[in-house]
């Protein structure tokens, strides 16, 4: 009996957006007279940071401070249609809709500012800090708030914009499968080291190292949050999580978090990652989607590492201690 170490790797790609498209999202952007901009839509923040990411995208496209962009989402009486938060689609689909809406609003904003400053709108730039000024002449300026006030009270205009993103549906040919399934692909490659106790079948994951390529990152801290959380979920999927431990039997279904086993904090190794940025032309400022793919490379990397450590060929998940001990028994029996 021993503790054996092994290394495994896996490389994956992941499509952005609903398979075959046909999944539109709209966004509306308007300036209030308080100096804020409001992005209105109906997408759902599950904790991944949609409200943050869309505010960043809107602020970038409008040329205004991040803090002045409010994201108002989650009410179908006020927010236009969103197909939903799934399929790694929200940064891409809602992000594109927000860019379109923000650009339309920005155009009006600059036209209003131009009239106030008595210059040509094409010659104006935003400083991203709340002011609009003449290119090359920063002293010729007006604040975004003053421009919004002038639009309403002086010029009678709404500083607003409408956006939608739709990748038209591409049906799959029933015979050949020919289709245009996705907008772009993100990529990941994960390397995992494990140590397996051949007496107990317990697996310790010693390290998880991943490279990701997700187009332009919108928020690197949130991207890292997805990568670390996904690595943990991948460990759980690979080693312990199931509602049917003796699948296909339906017995032993868990009722609670004692029966449904997820890794604890103590079992979590450090997660190292590098993120490459290859902006995609289809995405908002080049962004792809990362939300879903983050468990996909860790799972096979963990199992490949276990097989590498033990010299066995386990092909099912979760790889529980029981699965490991049975594989070791089989290996011993075939050697005998």
């Amino acid at each position: 009996m021993a503790k054996l170490r092994g290394t495994g790797m896996a490389a994956v790609n992941y499509p952005t957006g609903m398979h075959l498209g046909g999944d539109p999202t709209q966004a509306l952007v308007h300036a209030t007279t308080t100096g804020n901009f409001v992005v209105t839509l109906s997408s759902v923040d599950l904790g991944q940071g949609l409200k943050t990411v869309l505010a960043q995208i809107a602020a970038e496209a409008l040329g205004v401070p991040f803090e002045t962009v409010l994201v108002d989402t989650g009410d179908t009486d006020t927010g236009p249609h969103c197909t939903g938060t799934f399929a790694s689609r929200t940064t891409h689909r809602a992000g594109n809709a927000v860019v379109m809406a923000a650009r339309e609003a920005r155009k009006v904003l600059l036209e209003v500012a131009a009239e106030e400053l008595e210059v040509n709108a094409d010659d104006l730039v935003t400083d991203g800090e709340g002011s609009i000024h003449l290119a090359g002449a920063p002293e010729m300026k007006i604040s975004v708030t003053d421009a919004a006030l002038a639009a309403h009270f002086v010029q009678g205009k709404t500083v607003s914009g409408r956006g939608v993103y739709l990748k038209p549906m591409s049906p799959m040919d029933p015979e050949t499968g020919e289709c245009d399934p996705d907008s772009t692909h993100a990529h990941a490659c994960t390397v995992v080291e494990v140590e397996v106790d051949t007496e107990t079948g317990a697996v310790a994951v010693l390290s998880i190292k991943s490279a990701y390529e997700i187009g332009q990152q919108v928020n690197p801290a949130l991207v890292r949050g997805q990568i670390v959380g996904g690595a943990w979920m991948g460990m759980g999927h690979a080693l312990s999580e199931t509602t049917a431990p003796y699948y296909p039997a339906i017995d032993h279904a868990p009722r609670d978090f004692l029966g449904y086993v997820m890794p604890g904090a103590a079992e979590m190794p450090e997660v190292e990652c590098v993120v490459l940025e290859h902006p995609t032309e289809t995405g908002p400022f080049g962004a792809k989607g990362i939300g879903e793919m983050v468990a996909n490379s860790p799972i096979p990397a963990v199992v490949n590492a276990i097989n590498n450590a033990l010299g066995v060929r386990i092909t099912e998940i979760p790889v529980t201690p029981e699965v490991i001990l049975r594989a070791l028994d089989e290996k011993a029996a075939s050697a005998a």
């Binding site: 799959m172 499968g177 289709c179 590098v274 290859h278 995609t280």
Partner: peptide
């Protein structure tokens, strides 16, 4: 690994491919 321009099985030419670079980066990290 798929390269840009390769024909995929569903008959769409690959673009935005970066698997090669991602694997190379992971190798360096590990």
């Amino acid at each position: 690994a798929y390269r840009n321009g390769d024909m995929k099985a569903h008959r769409k030419a690959a673009d935005d491919a970066a698997l090669v670079e991602t694997i190379q980066a992971a190798a360096q990290l590990a």
